[in-house]
């Protein structure tokens, strides 16, 4: 499973998005846009999940915000630190 696939699976499962499948999340679509409807708790939950699954910490939202734009940006953030 690629990092992107893994991220999509984590997001759907950890955020309990049972009305959408991992495959339906597009790599470049905004995570916090209308379609997914995520909010600030989801953002910090994704940070927690990234820390648990990849061992990569995000210290604060200043660092987190650019990474949490889309699956693409998040995957790039993780790859750069693996």
């Amino acid at each position: 499973m690629t990092i992107k696939e893994k991220l999509k699976k984590i997001i759907v499962e950890a955020l309990n998005l049972d009305d959408i499948t991992p495959e339906e999340i597009k790599d470049d679509e905004p995570l916090f846009g209308k379609k997914l409807g995520l909010d600030s708790i989801d953002a910090v939950e994704i940070v927690f999940q990234v820390e648990q699954h990849f061992g990569i910490g995000i210290k604060n939202m200043k660092e987190g915000r650019p990474a949490l734009q889309s699956i693409n940006t998040l995957a790039a953030f993780i790859e750069a630190r693996l």
Partner: peptide
Amino acid sequence: KSLLINDD
């Protein structure tokens, strides 16, 4: 800390 609202 998990809510990222602790100041270090």
